[in-house]
């Protein structure tokens, strides 16, 4: 039993979870296994069900179907305090209390979480708010408020972090620092589930992604797996000496695959199936040094996401 409990630390398990409001299916039949120490991204349009899914995981919303377990325990019922002490949560667009200082705000959360209030300054330091600790939240910028919200989630060293749009309002430098913090937490075995609109931000950083649309999971896997499943075309940008462009076009027409070739400034832009990349480059070999530069762009998460959300994938 003890071994099992230790095994389940930092895991999130959803089995057939649904939340229906009458005929509206906010979340429908979601199965999910998030592993300990995993950085897990949740993407989807507004209204796709991301926030409801977070609230289900926290036990704020009672599922109409299915079962949820965090750290191997049910999120509601008698054991809810123990489970919640292991969860740090940052809701989307949270506004904290204007009249309290950052430090007072954190101490308030520490008292409820039953965490020593002495640790609050260190957590403020971690999110870069030490200098503003005693200033009222009224005077905080949007980014500082968001960082204070993140600090509150970090209190008590939770094993699971649930972060709903955590980088909203942060400037690029703060976003960088934020992900650095997440990376070091993950290294300590903390499990992170986060959602974001800014997919480019997620794709380099998460281990796996779930795409949510109309309350259902449309796809789940690492960014690479999703790319391979979808087989979206890669884009090859060729910079070619102006006298060799025609020759390059002839060479490409000999490649036995479906290519989309477009003339761009100082060269060509080709979209081709992922597996044809090398055949394409081989065909261009005779150009020699007239081929000045080659750049291959993988499909972005945005490309994946928007084709999924349009219902392209099943």
């Amino acid at each position: 039993m003890v071994g099992e409990a230790a095994e389940a630390q930092g895991t999130i398990v959803l089995r057939g979870v649904g939340k229906h409001y009458g005929a509206v299916r906010a979340v429908d039949g979601v199965d999910l296994d998030v592993r300990r120490g995993e950085m897990f991204g949740l993407i989807g349009h507004n209204g796709a069900g991301k926030s409801t899914l977070f609230k289900l995981m926290l036990g704020l919303v009672t599922p109409t179907a299915g079962e949820l377990r965090i750290n191997g325990a049910a999120v509601t019922g008698n054991g809810f305090r123990a489970v919640r002490r292991q969860i740090g949560y940052l809701p989307e667009n949270v506004v904290l209390w204007d009249n309290l200082s950052g430090l007072e705000t954190l101490r308030f959360f520490a008292r409820i979480k039953d965490v020593p209030a002495g640790g609050c300054p260190a957590v403020l330091e971690r999110v870069g708010l030490s200098a503003a600790a005693t200033r009222p939240v009224r005077e905080y910028s949007k980014g500082m408020r968001q960082r204070l919200g993140f600090a509150q989630a970090l209190l008590g060293s939770p094993q699971v972090l649930l972060l709903d749009e955590p980088t909203g309002g942060l400037d690029p430098h703060a976003i960088h620092t934020f992900y650095d913090t997440l990376a070091s937490l993950r290294a300590q075995g903390v499990t992170v589930v986060l959602s974001s609109h800014i997919l480019a931000e997620l794709q380099a950083r998460v281990d796996r992604i779930a795409v949510l649309s109309d309350g259902r999971l449309q796809a789940i896997g690492s960014v690479r797996e999703l790319r391979e499943q979808r087989d979206l075309p890669v884009t090859v940008t060729l910079r070619i000496a102006s006298d060799a462009i025609a020759a390059a076009e002839r060479a490409l027409s000999a490649v036995p695959a479906q290519l989309v070739v477009e003339r761009v400034e100082d060269g060509l832009e080709v979209r081709c199936p992922r597996l044809v990349k090398s055949a394409l480059l081989l065909a261009l070999a005779p150009l020699g040094d007239r081929l000045l530069d080659v750049q291959i762009t993988e499909p972005s998460l945005e490309d994946l996401f928007f084709t999924d959300a349009d219902g392209g994938m099943r």
Partner: peptide
């Protein structure tokens, strides 16, 4: 309205 209720309800309370 300010979104802090969800945060409060998600605490061990």
């Amino acid at each position: 309205e300010r979104g802090s209720l969800d945060l409060l309800l998600a605490l061990p309370i």
